[in-house]
Simulated assay, not measured.
Amino acid sequence: MAQHCPLTSLMSLAMLLNAAFCANFSDFFQPLWAPDHIATEGDHINLSLDTVSGNVWFSYNLDDFYLYLFGKASMQIKLVEGDSAGTVTAFYMSSEGPNRDELDFEYLGNVSGEPYLVQTNVYVNGSGNREQRHSLWFDPTLDFHTYSLFWNRRYIVFLVNGIPIRVFANKEENGGIYPKSQAMSIRGSMWNADDWATQGGRVKTNWSHSPFVATFRSFEIDACELSPETDDVEAECAVSRHFWWDKPSVRELNRHQSHQLKWVRRKHMVYDYCKDVARFTELPRECIN
């Protein structure tokens, strides 16, 4: 079991032979840009957005990326309070380059009193446009909530407080595409996206409320850690090594999780690209059962 740290709880499969350990945020994450908009406050990391800049951080030490293929990554986040229209806060995994793979949680701000929407997306070989959007059954600005990405060869699960809100299944046998050959770093960011984020861009960012601040804490990862120099990442994290995410018990959602997913889809899904026949003259292959 991973050890919980005041700020950061880290454990990768490469560390299983050693004890889980605690460390400072700066030991595992570095700003990619705008370090002056990323502040450590006790056991919290505050990301701020104003008219000058947003920000991005990613898993990186003084020498190289921390990269992962398959496993689970979680972060507790408290989102921007009040009028957050136009802003996007994100927790995601991504590889490098134009043909990147990427798994996204994007939190779309709204005017005061209106709910946040959580947008999830999957990029494979640089191709995205696989969005789903959900409302939440709580106010994500009042307290911290846990957002998790689970990923193996069979499916990707997006979870909120341990409840699955989306499953992206591997349907390569039906002609679909699936991210499984590019190791990804862990990232967080905050930026202005008032051209699309709130009511399709109709509501713009009110900069009189800036700086907008979102707070991250309690990062956890249990995944296959790789070096950027690894040539065959799939072989390095092969099923034959019997990682926990390849065990029969997690090859599909259990009955309780399946019921939770159905409840979320029925009560909280507001958009599914697989249902958008106006957008796609031919639905993506992974949308076909």
Rank of each mutant, 00 (worst) to 15 (best):
P140V: 01
A20M: 11
L13Y: 13
D246Y: 06
G200P: 10
D104L: 01
R285E: 12
S48Y: 06
S181P: 04
F158E: 00
R133C: 11
E96G: 11
L103T: 03
H209A: 15
G176F: 07
V213K: 00
M93A: 15
L10W: 06
W245R: 04
E234A: 12
A23H: 12
I163T: 04
D195L: 12
R265N: 12
N110L: 06
G162M: 13
Y92R: 02
N254T: 08
V80I: 12
L149T: 06
K204M: 15
T281W: 15
M184P: 05
D139I: 15
F168A: 07
F65A: 11
Y147I: 03
P140K: 01
A39F: 07
V160Y: 00
N192A: 12
F216G: 02
W191Q: 05
Y155E: 08
V167M: 07
K171I: 08
F212W: 10
Q30W: 15
F105D: 00
N121L: 05
V264W: 03
Y66P: 01
F158W: 15
G71T: 00
F65P: 05
C237T: 05
A73T: 08
A235M: 13
S240C: 14
S181Q: 10
V124N: 03
T141F: 02
I45L: 09
K262T: 10
D64W: 14
Q199H: 12
D27M: 07
